[in-house]
Structure formats: C-alpha cells, structure tokens
Design a protein around this nucleic acid. Structure first.
Ligand code: ZN
Ligand code: ZN
Length: 263
DNA sequence: GTAGTCGGACGGTCAAAAAG
DNA sequence: TTTTTGACCGTCCGACTACG
C-alpha cells in the first residue's frame, strides 16, 4: 500500500470499487487499513481545503520582476498599465537550463502506474453549459461486510458519469476566470453494496487537479496542473470523462481531495 | 492611503536517474 | 523506452519603509 505525497491514493488491481481500497500483505482490507485510509482522507482534507495553490505566470515582465510583484500574461501587464510603465513592459529574460550536470542518486521510486484510463473528449457544449449540483461529500465504499465512509463538508461536486460506474470515472472541470485556465477535477463513482442490494449513488467527487500526458497515443491524466481551453482543442482527447464543468466561483475550486489511481 | 524594497516561501520546469 | 525525481531558478507573498 502506498500513498503519494499529493494526497493520491494508489491502489492495486483493476478498477472495480474494491480496487481503490489499499491492500495489506494478504490482499485483504483489514480494519487497520481502513482506519489508515480514513485518517489519510481526513488529513488531506485538513491540509488542502483551506489552502489554494499560488499561481504564477510563466514569465513576469521586467517591471514586476524587479519589484517582486504579481504580473500577468498581458503586455503591457495590468500592473504596468496602472503605474504608467507600459512602454517598458516586456518579458524578463530567462536563462537556458544547463545540461550534463550530474546529480546524486534519487530515493527509491514507486512503481509505474499502468492502464491509466483514457478519457473521452469534452465538447464545447459541455463546456458552455455547466451543471451545478450540490452533492453531499460522502466517500463510501462497501467491500464484502465492511463499509467505511467519510463525510466531507458541503461542497459542489459532480455526479458519476454513469450511475453504474464502478471505476474512477467521475470528473469535472472549471475555469479560473482570472486567467481562463481550465482545471480538471477527477473523482470516482462507487457502489453501495450493502444488504445484497446494489445502490448506485452519485460520485463523491474525490478530486485532484490533474494534468495530462500522452503515452502511446493515449492522453491520460497525471497530477497537478492545468490546461487552457486552447490546449484541450490541441490535445484532442485530453479531456475528462463526465459532463459537468464547475465554474471557478464554486467552493470546489479550492479543494483538493484524494484521488485514486489504479495500478 | 499608495508605491517601493526585498527575504525567502513557494511553484513550475525539465534533464538526470530509475524503472520497464 | 517511459516514468519519476528533485535541483534549479523564477515568481511574488507579505512585511516592511517612505512619502504625502
Ligand atoms: Zn508585469
Ligand atoms: Zn508589465
């Protein structure tokens, strides 16, 4: 069982609901493991809800750089316009990164993440007509007799793409309107299998901001970045499954829940 | 109130290292 | 080859000072 530093739960096995549960040596989900996951979730919630990441521009203008002040992508940038420095507002120089520099040994790595899901294209229509849906943040899972759940505070989140979804397929996206960045939030659906009845329920939207990478022609999410809408069109299939973009002024923007990745 | 200064926390990049 | 790591180095938060 392993958790990575970005509050992502790494599970083994396939994408059945049980798979995102961490396994102990005997491949069973012991109470202690459940307790550990519960703690992890609680911790990640505590650590991430209040704190949003500072967003930097790729290149500050020379004036903002000199003053150590926030810049933006405009040229002239807003700060220079405000201060009447439009004439000198240009990108600051950045030096080339040097190659051939030896490094010390790295710490032992975790295993590759295989069989990452490939997500269908999010269309502009989905983009244009976001659905806002307040869903109780309940993380729940049934595995044979054991069930555990963790209640999140009220938050906007998205339903699972499919009501029978058993895989980590729920997601949403939203725009940071200040810079028109599109963020993706991925979660997963789950099935409550209590009392021999299968009840599907909307996703708790266990989310994380995921970037994408292309492997063998498949574009799949990796962690912690963002894309603009232009990037989405460029990347083609680099879009989340699910149809419910959430705009930036909803609470979810600042939240960062654990995300499951199947090994 | 505003603007200027700046130490250093924070974050994004990307080649090296490691794994497949 | 793909994936992960982490050093590098840039951004800019926030605390401060100066000025009117
Ligand atoms: Zn600027
Ligand atoms: Zn500028």
């Amino acid at each position: 069982m392993q958790f990575d530093k970005n509050n992502i739960i790494i599970a083994t096995g396939n994408t059945s609901p049980a798979s995102w549960m961490p396994f102990d040596e005997n491949n069973t989900n012991s109470d202690s493991v459940l307790a550990e996951v519960s703690t992890l979730i609680a911790t990640s919630k505590k650590n991430t809800i209040e704190k949003s990441k500072r967003k930097q521009v790729k290149n500050a203008c020379v004036n903002c750089q000199k003053a150590c002040k926030k810049c933006d992508d405009g040229r002239p940038c807003k700060r220079c316009v405000k201060l009447g420095l439009t004439a000198t507002c240009r990108d600051s120089d950045r030096k080339e990164r040097k190659k051939g520099v030896k490094r010390g040994p790295y710490k032992k790595r975790q295993a590759y993440i295989k069989d990452k899901p490939v997500y269908p294209k999010l269309t502009e229509e989905h983009w244009a007509t976001p659905i806002f849906e307040p869903v109780p943040q309940v993380l729940s899972h049934s595995n044979n007799q054991s069930i555990y759940s963790d209640l999140y505070e009220d938050s906007y989140c998205v339903p699972s793409q499919s009501t029978s979804s058993l895989s980590p397929t729920s997601s949403s996206s939203f725009v940071d309107e200040s810079d028109e960045t599109l963020y993706y939030a991925y979660g997963f659906g789950y099935t409550n299998n209590n009392n021999n009845t299968i009840t599907t329920t909307s996703s708790p939207s266990s989310t994380s901001m995921l970037d994408h990478q292309t492997i063998s022609g498949n574009t799949t999410p990796i962690q912690n970045s963002s894309y603009s809408w232009d990037d989405i069109e460029t990347y083609g299939n680099a879009s989340p499954i699910g149809w419910n973009p959430i705009l930036s002024d909803t609470i979810i923007q600042l939240q960062h829940y654990p995300t499951m990745i199947c090994l």
